[in-house]
Design a protein around this nucleic acid. Structure first.
Length: 567
DNA sequence: TCTCAAACTTAGCAGTTTGAGT
DNA sequence: ACTCAAACTGCTAAGTTTGAGA
């Protein structure tokens, strides 16, 4: 009702059109004239009748009979309803039969004279089968999951992540991939290597086929592997994130990051010292490490040219990817980064850096072509070797994990207001999460329907605002009239205010999230114990932060962390 | 030291399901 | 009951890291 009778001022699109077009203002509608011009495309019709497959038969008087499409269509309507009791009622049957006969050819009409002699059961079965088919597919998927989706590892039944072999198809790749369009070929049993324990019941290859190999390597975690034909790399079937083996690894990862926390000051001092080193390789290493630490860049392995899209990370950044500004927007020593990173996602950032870094960058860029490596004396293995010496288990990506987690913790501290209600606290959480996603450059394409859905939300908010002022006015009137029972009116105002707040929070959250993907950091970079502790501290149900899958993945953390966990 | 294979984590997207709001 | 957006899931590409072998 609301929507239909909404006055034009609620409809933003209409309002804009009227503003844009002065003629509108001149128009007057009188004497019952509703409009002067109307144009549209008309309605969309129901799809035409698709005749039944020839093996689905209609029987009359016990004999199969081919119906004309018109008669058949009407017959299918009856057949689809056959299970309902009303199809046994005389009136229903009488009306149906009368109307059905109208659709028949004269031959059919001559033969089909008695509804009692009609047998629709074959047709009915067909439709039942069709709707069952959907259910069957679901059930079959469930059965396959139960049979192939689990394994036994060390006395536990563990979920497998990707137990289906990747189907053949045309390779797309991300970004400007030189191999896009190539055929990804079908994987056969003779391509497959099975890994399982010697004393287990080995999986059987399909009849008449053989596995490439069955091995028993308990130093690795994969169950199945094959070589993919596009890049020639190996693909694996491994366990689900909820499994012990993945959970422990995840925990270990965050523990390493926490160890970095203890010595990060030392390491930072060290690389700052190294900016002054006499040796070029050490300076380059130190500047690269500074970027990895400050900007959460990825290590940046070198890649084989022509095999993959041209993307870079820290160590593989080229001269053409950065610009130096001794001064920009009132800030000194500004570096502008612009390159394609993992998945061909653009990294664009303009940041002030320390003077020494800036001077070093100028030095590194001297006498180089745009497509030369910025860090020509550095690669990931040199960098990681150095990091290994600074701390046991330290690699470039630990900095990403560390900086992501520490940022979440610090942002949560800063943004959470204990007075807030639950939705407002969750907004704070999302904002903290967002800060991390921005740091790690986790982007997404704006959802296809973003603009529209934002508009819809705005319409809702406008309507809610009006509703609120109406409710307030009513309250005022009732106070003015000295009505004592205005409690319900007060409550109404309060309720609407809350609803409005919620909508506004939602709009803010959505707008801020337009191009940012929160999932990746949540799943891979943020120590879940920080979130668990935060939930406990502020009485937020963990379900508000983690869905079922995530709770399974982070079961170890939910078990482990109490409210004063410190990363 | 370099190269390459292997193993494992991280990543965004498309399609589907769920659920909130009316 | 219905609609639309949000949430979720599956998928698999694209990274990082390690270590063996030349």
């Amino acid at each position: 009702e609301d929507e239909f009778y909404q006055s034009p001022r609620h409809d933003k699109s209409l309002k804009r059109e009227r503003d844009d077009d002065n003629e509108w203002e001149e128009e007057r509608y009188t004497d019952g004239v509703k409009w002067k011009f109307l144009e549209h495309k008309g309605p969309v019709f129901a799809p035409p009748y698709d005749p039944l497959p020839s093996n689905v038969k209609f029987y009359y008087d016990g004999k199969p009979m081919k119906l004309s499409p018109e008669a058949e269509e009407v017959a299918t309507f009856f057949a689809k309803m056959l299970d309902h009791e009303y199809t046994t009622k005389d009136i229903f049957r009488k009306n149906f039969f009368k109307d059905w006969r109208k659709e028949m050819t004269s031959e059919e009409k001559a033969i089909i004279t008695d509804l009692k002699k009609c047998n629709f059961s074959d047709m009915s079965e067909y439709f039942k089968a069709q709707s069952e088919a959907r259910k069957k597919i679901k059930e079959e998927n469930e059965r396959i999951l139960q049979e192939y989706g689990f394994c036994i590892m060390d006395n536990h039944r563990e979920r497998i992540a990707n137990f289906r072999i990747e189907p053949p198809g045309l390779f797309r790749g991300r970004g400007d991939h030189p191999k896009m369009g190539m055929l990804k070929r079908r994987i056969r049993p003779q391509d497959i290597i099975i890994n399982c324990s010697k004393d287990s019941k080995h999986p059987e290859p399909p009849p008449g086929t053989k596995w490439k190999e069955v091995r028993h390597d308990n130093k690795v975690t994969w169950l199945v592997s094959w070589t993919e034909n596009i890049q020639g790399s190996i693909k694996y079937i491994m366990l689900n994130p909820s499994s012990r083996i993945k959970g422990e690894k995840d925990w270990q990862k965050y523990e390493t990051a926490r160890r970095l926390k203890k010595c990060v000051d030392r390491i930072r001092n060290q690389y700052r010292e190294d900016w002054k080193s006499k040796e070029m390789r050490i300076r380059q290493r130190a500047v690269a490490l500074y970027f990895i630490d400050k900007l959460a860049l990825r290590a940046g392995n070198e890649k084989e040219e022509g095999e993959t899209a041209d993307t870079v990370g820290c160590c593989s950044v080229r001269v053409e990817h950065i610009k130096l500004y001794p001064e920009s927007d009132g800030q000194e020593y500004v570096v502008e980064f612009d390159f394609l990173g993992k998945d061909s996602i653009r990294y664009y950032n303009k940041v002030p850096v320390e003077k020494r870094v800036f001077k070093n960058l100028q030095l590194f860029m001297e006498n180089k072509e745009p497509d030369d490596d910025l860090f020509d004396r550095l690669n990931t293995s040199i960098l990681n070797k150095h990091l290994q010496e600074l701390m046991d288990g330290l690699t470039a990506k630990v900095f990403r994990t560390y900086n992501a987690s520490i940022t979440l913790q610090q942002q949560l501290k800063q943004l959470t207001n204990s007075e807030d209600n639950v939705p407002a606290k969750i907004l704070s959480y999302n904002r903290a999460n967002r800060a991390v996603a921005i740091l790690c450059n986790h982007q997404r394409a704006p959802p296809k329907t973003f603009e529209k859905s934002m508009q819809n939300l705005q319409t809702k908010i406008d309507a809610k605002r009006d509703q609120l002022s109406d409710a307030k006015r009513e309250l005022k009137i009732s106070i003015y009239l000295g009505q004592i029972n205005n409690i319900s009116k007060k409550k109404a105002v309060q309720r609407i205010e809350e609803q409005l707040m919620k909508l506004e929070v939602q709009a803010t959250d959505r707008e801020e999230n337009k191009q940012i993907a929160l999932g990746t950091s949540k799943l891979n970079y943020l120590d879940p114990r920080i979130s668990v502790a935060w939930c406990k501290k502020f009485g937020i149900p963990i379900e508000k932060i983690y869905n079922k899958t995530q709770r399974e993945k982070f079961a170890w953390a939910i078990d482990m962390a109490d409210e004063d966990f410190e990363f």
